[in-house]
Each structure stands twice: as C-alpha cells, then as structure tokens.
Design a protein around this nucleic acid. Sequence first.
DNA 1: CCCAAACTGTCATGCGCTGACAGTTGTCGT
DNA 2: ACGACAACTGTCAGCGCATGACAGTTTGGG
Lengths: 230, 230
Amino acid sequence: MTATAPETRPGNEPAGPGSQPPGRRERKKQRTREALVDAAFTLFAEKGFDATTVEEIADAVDVSSRTFFRYFASKEDVALTFQEEQTSAVMQALADRPPDEPIMTALRRTVVEIARACEGGGLGFDPERFECLFSMMSDSPTLMAGSLEHAQKKQQLMTEIIAERMGLDPATELRPHVIAAAATCGFQAAADAARRHGGAFGSLSETIDQAFAILEEGLNSPARPPGQDS
Amino acid sequence: MTATAPETRPGNEPAGPGSQPPGRRERKKQRTREALVDAAFTLFAEKGFDATTVEEIADAVDVSSRTFFRYFASKEDVALTFQEEQTSAVMQALADRPPDEPIMTALRRTVVEIARACEGGGLGFDPERFECLFSMMSDSPTLMAGSLEHAQKKQQLMTEIIAERMGLDPATELRPHVIAAAATCGFQAAADAARRHGGAFGSLSETIDQAFAILEEGLNSPARPPGQDS
DNA sequence: CCCAAACTGTCATGCGCTGACAGTTGTCGT
DNA sequence: ACGACAACTGTCAGCGCATGACAGTTTGGG
C-alpha cells in the first residue's frame, strides 16, 4: 500500500540528497503532505478511522480530495505512513547490527529498540501518534487488514536481508523465510496480547522482548505450567 | 470479515441440527449461496478477483447485487469462504488430537493434515478452488489483506484453544499467544516461500512441515550454512 | 386459506478511488 | 523580465463497493 505509485505522486522522490530541498515547490509539497498526515491523525483520534472521510481530511488542509489521492494511494495509506517509518527504521537498525551476532538476537534487539523509541518518543517518533494508530487498529478491520498486508510486504524484504546476512539463498533455503516470519510474529503476538489484555505483560516493548525470548528458547520447552519441571 | 452479520443474513443460522434442512426455503437459500460461490470462483478464475464485479457474480446467478450482499458481507467474503472452511477444519482437527501430545507436534500434524487435504481433495475440499484462491492472493492486495485479517482473527481463537490445552491463562501468560502466532507464521512463511519460489520446497504441505520443523528445533540452532560449524 | 415472517428487487445514497481536462504556480533559460 | 515548460491543483464525471428503506413476492404454519 504505502508508496505505491500508479500515478505520479508529488510528495516523495528526489528532494535533494540531504539537507535543503532546493526548490520552493518541494517545500510546499512537503508541507502539504505533512499537513495532511497531521489533519488525518487529528480527525482519526477524534472520530475514529472509519468515520473520518477523505473529504474531511482534505477540507481541513483546504485542498480538494482529488489532491489527497495525489499524495496518498488510499485513506489507509495516511495512517500507515507511521508504520512505514517504523518498519524502515527496523530495517535500518538491523543493518547496523554487528554481523557476528546470532540472527535472532539481532532481530530481537532491533525490534525492541524501535518499539521503545515509538513508545518513548526516541528518534523521530511521536508516541501519541503511535498510540493513536495502535488503538485505531482495534476497531477498524479495514485498517487492521491494511496494516497486516503492509507488514507482510515488509516481511518479504526482511527475508532477503536475513538470508544475505546468513549467507543463504532464499530461493532454496526455507530458514530465512521462517525466521522473518517469526520476527513479525513475535511482534504481532505481543501486540495482540497487549490489545486484548491491557498492559498485563508490561509495556509493548517489554512484551515483545518476552515473546522473542519464548521463540528463541524453543516452543516446546516448558510443556507444562511453570513452577516445577520434569 | 467472514460471517460478520450487521444485517440478518439468510444463508446460515439454524438449518436444523444435522441432516435434512426441514424447509424448502432453507434448501433454496443454500442453493443460492452455493451458486454464488460457484459463479464467483468461476469468474475469479477467468478474469481475476479485482476485475470481477459483484454485479457480474449476481447476474450469473440471476439475482440482484443487493441480494449478493445479503449472503456475503463483502466481495472478499465469498472468496474467503474457502479459507473459513480450512481454518474451521484446523480448529476441529486440533481438538481431536490426543491431549498428551506436545502442543507443537499437535499443531504441526493438524495443519499439515488439513493442507494435504486441500491439495489432494481430501475431506470436502476442492483442490481447484484452493489453487485458485492461492494464486489470486498474489495479484490482489485487497484479497491478501482480507485473508491476513481473517487469519489473524482465527489466531485469537486459536490462542484460547491452545491456552486451555496447556492449562494456562491467556490473560497472564504470553506463551499461548506466541505459539498461536508461530502456527499461523509457519503457514504464512511456507505460503510466501511457495508463492515466490515456485515449488522449490516441494508441495505446500511439505513446505509447511519443514517450516514447523525449523520452528520446533529453535531458530538459532544452525547459525551458519550447514556443512561445517564453529 | 390467510397471516406473518422471510426473502428479494428496486431505488436512492454515501464513500473510496480514478481518468480527463483545464487552470494555476513554480522553475529555468535567455 | 519574460516566456516556455513542467509540475501541481481543482473541477467534473464516473465506476464499484456497500448499506438503508420500502414495496412486492414466496413460504411455512395455524
């Protein structure tokens, strides 16, 4: 979803290498885009995702709804902008991990690190927006579906990265696929648990950490309730 | 998605306990419903999911498109009818497993069993339809998203079942959440691998079996390409 | 046989999303 | 400064999905 470009989208592309977008046009685009995201999240927080129409978002920024769709492929896309930033951050952070670290350890630390940033406002992340998106999922199946699809798409990229790091060919080796899937799974299991049982497991990042711990030590290990063993 | 009922849907509900739907009306409903699914899959196979309109499906059965929506909550819903049957079969089969079997073993055998049935036409499953649905996912993001959401919803149910079987409380124990997530993950990793690398790993059911094997033995174990070690 | 419930069709409407075209605004060369 | 060109935007028209309302038909039961 995010960043699909069947039409020529204005918001992204060159923007110059690093600092100053050379043109005034680029800046205007960037401002419009951010204004749209901003207005969208405000309205979402107020009335929920489904109840907010694209026209309302566009009106709030005083552009036509047609223009909205020149910046975002769909209404979901605005909301998932945030998720896109998260997943990108994960990919980035994973690349920066020491290559000799065991893969699961690297994944675990990476994901937990980004999750913590999302919760606490580390890096460029806005905890409020994170919270908003997270709770919106619960009562908008559409958005949830979009989010899952986005995650699944990113998982494919993740598979490639993992495979390369492990020196395996994803076309013949199943392991990288499973590991990538396990990573998203660890996240989703934690999110699901958090959503449905409040903060019973601590903060989200803590829950994620625990989930990864369980994955690493193997799913069969303590086949019975903890407190005693064999 | 599947089986949401904001309006009163005619197709399902009582139908009598087991054998003969008593009324002529029930039978007619059932026939209409099946005809719709049938027509839908035929058209999907012909022109793809997105290119097929609800009106076409309805016309093929000679009902109004309004009626279509009285049987199915959405266009996706028709397609995911099949997936619903699969997941239900999994839940059922899992319940029939000996309770002393390790949970991962039970899950693995269950999922593989159903997958095999889908491929080979075991139980009530139609391999052609299975294949159709499977390939449709690849080129319809909408459908993929719907499928993932459906899977996620079922995973919540699965969590409850697993928790009960393990004698754990899902509100305080993370493990059942992770295990349920791992199960769907095992499936999705296999599906993803199969989709993107042809049959390089064998049939889907075989691939799933391998994926579960990797999950069980732990994700860290052979941290380097097989053939030598540290 | 008639009544009430269930089912269906028609009509109207809202929202998401896209194509086409015309108008405006920024950019760049001269 | 000016004009040509590209980029961006608004308006309009339209398709497809989905839902509410209402009227007409079929079916099952008393």
